[in-house]
Simulated scan of single mutants.
Amino acid sequence: MGKWGYKPFENDTAADFSGDLDEAPESERLELLRAGLSAVAESAGHVDAGRAEVAIAAAAVVARDLPGGEQFQSAVCGPTQVIPHVSSDFVTLAARAVDRLLEGDNDLSDDWSGEVEGECWSGSLRSLGRVLSGEQVDSPEKLW
């Protein structure tokens, strides 16, 4: 797993997913988001790191227009092309994917639990979940 930070787009898999979104025709971008989110939100059992990283990046894209969602965007590795407006069912699906990663068995939780920035990663994921669920989110500086 190539990672350089704990934020949603600070790993190779998420950066590749952003590239896939940018390269896809605009009409197919929502389906890519849905597939990335569903792979985690609707899964049972262990979630591998790749699916988890894509789901977190997709959730961050879904959160981009929500209050507080700007803190999860990346001008460097995030998608740069237009993403069509997402409906409320995408927000619900993204929140389920994030909850699944916070509560379920997955490689990322295992990997980050031994890292110095592990609490930053889990704090960022909890904050993303709060944004997706419509809760008031403090400024990022207060989260970690």
Rank of each mutant, 00 (worst) to 15 (best):
V61G: 12
E10Y: 08
D107R: 02
A39V: 00
D12M: 08
N106A: 10
L32V: 01
S38F: 00
R34C: 02
G134V: 00
S88F: 03
S139N: 09
D65R: 09
V137E: 08
S127W: 00
A24Q: 08
D110L: 14
L37N: 11
S88A: 11
S88T: 08
W121V: 08
G123K: 04
A75T: 13
K3I: 07
E141D: 15
V82Y: 05
P79S: 14
V76E: 15
I83W: 12
A75R: 13
G68K: 04
A14W: 09
E119G: 06
G123R: 09
A97I: 09
E119V: 14
V47N: 02
D16R: 15
C77S: 14
V86N: 03
G118N: 13
L108S: 10
A14H: 08
G19S: 07
P84F: 06
A58P: 01
V47L: 02
V91C: 03
W4V: 07
Q136C: 06
F9I: 03
E117P: 01
D107A: 12
V47Y: 01
R34Q: 10
G50H: 07
G68P: 11
E31K: 11
K142A: 09
D48C: 07
L101T: 02
G2L: 07
R51T: 13
G114D: 06
D65S: 12
Y6A: 15
V62T: 06
W121C: 09
G114H: 05
S18R: 00
L132Q: 04
V47D: 04
C120E: 13
S133C: 02
L101Y: 03
L66W: 03
A41L: 01
L143P: 12
R100P: 05
L32W: 03
G129H: 08
P84V: 08
G104Y: 02
D110F: 11
P67D: 02
C77K: 11
E53Q: 15
A35I: 12
L21F: 07
R34E: 10
L93E: 04
V86W: 02
A55R: 11
D89G: 04
V116C: 04
R34S: 03
P140H: 03
Q81M: 14
E119C: 06
L66Q: 10
V98L: 10
S74I: 13
L66Y: 04
S18E: 02
R51Y: 13
L30W: 01
L102Y: 11
S38W: 00
E70W: 10
L108N: 12
S87I: 02
A59W: 04
L21A: 12
S74A: 13
S124P: 00
V91W: 00
D12Q: 13
E117L: 11
